[in-house]
Design a protein around this nucleic acid. Structure first.
Lengths: 215, 215
DNA sequence: GTCTATATGCTGATAGAC
DNA sequence: GTCTATCAGCATATAGAC
């Protein structure tokens, strides 16, 4: 990886961003030095500043591009006609997109605290835009009587959290393929908002006693 | 906060752990110096080493104590007799316990990467023990015919993720109290495993067409 | 476009005074 | 129990040679 000098502008930029993404995700923004990023790419630390204004801009750009790719990919996704179909499409899409770039996902969730205030606000706006896409699907299904939703915002956050949570445990080559996981989650999300069940809380047995014995 | 000298062993130790917890959670383990922790407590950096072997031990102890408190608190929690009652109790407990200590929760989830391998393994074991508590409830309810669960592990991970996700958006003094959030989530979790619904996937409209128009 | 050299300051951890 | 002083090294960012 040791090089002396030369002009490779077209590839050095992407290499720097890739190295920074991987190092930030694995060790944390504050724990990674510009020297270490440069060493990973095979240039000297000073050369990094031809491609980024400073370390903070490097982090912000990684997160901004990730969020904008997420929004663009969802916009380009085939979604179906009905709200239930769109919800299933959202679940499959979210899992597929996030499993394809675990480091960017981890960074976008864990290093919000390392963003300067104005950068934080811009990333937050993009995240809320994405959450709004899911909220719209849920609201449409609720209005059409296809979903039963106790609280729109809490249901939105629940679904986002359970889908994104796949990234914390999924390992390539494990028991289930990505698509199989996507199908199971699409099913679980559908059940979370399904209208046909009665008051599920009755089954907690709190008000009607032990009508279902545990053993 | 400036002090000169003196013996305050009984309170300095807890103060150091509290300061380290807060700083690690807010800025990241790698971004926080021992000097900064010391300054927060009001002692010199050298004094920290009377209370911790090194920075890594400080992090590990914070995470270990958090996980052991979690397990002990759940063990002491009233749980109910039936699996549905236990599941609702788990949901309420998880949200209450986690909302009470957001910094420790954030640290335990985000700084696993900063643990030395042997420390990581010990924390992971504690986490799996906690997940096992939920998995046991789900398995019992499934065997008793009280739950319908497509995949035990994925359902376990979904529920943990959606419950823990509350910490990312809940703000004190907002629209809902902690208890109200706990109730709504207990309901959503119950619906996720409720047996009385048919095949929820049918409602995605994929095989039976547009039997429910969107508008 | 990349290098080397540099400025200024902070890093984790230890030794020894009090 | 806390302090001060210290070690050897790394931090971000810039300037100027090539």
């Amino acid at each position: 990886m040791a090089r002396k000098t030369g002009s490779r502008a077209e590839i050095t930029g992407p290499l720097i961003r890739q190295a920074a993404l991987s190092l930030f995700a694995r060790h944390g923004y504050g724990a990674v030095s510009m020297r270490r990023i440069a060493a990973e790419v095979g240039v000297q630390a000073g050369a990094l500043y031809l491609y980024t204004r400073d370390k903070q801009s490097l982090l912000f750009e990684l997160m901004r591009v990730h969020m904008e790719e997420l929004l663009a990919a969802w916009a380009a996704e085939p979604k179906g006609e009905t709200a239930p179909a769109r919800l299933a499409a959202f679940a499959r899409f979210h899992i597929r997109f996030h499993l394809e770039r675990p480091e960017a996902v981890f960074l976008a969730y864990m290093e919000l605290r390392s963003l300067a205030p104005e950068n934080f606000a811009r990333i937050e706006a993009l995240r809320q835009q994405y959450e709004g896409e899911l909220a719209q699907i849920l609201a449409a299904g609720q209005q059409a009587g296809q979903f039963r939703i106790a609280d729109l915002r809490l249901t939105t956050m629940s679904i986002i959290a359970m889908l994104t949570g796949v990234n914390t445990w999924y390992r390539e080559g494990g028991r289930l393929s990505r698509d199989e996981v996507g199908e199971i989650y699409a099913d679980m999300v559908a059940r979370l908002v399904a209208p046909e069940s009665g008051d599920a809380r009755v089954y907690a047995g709190e008000h009607i006693g032990d009508h279902i014995a545990e053993k």
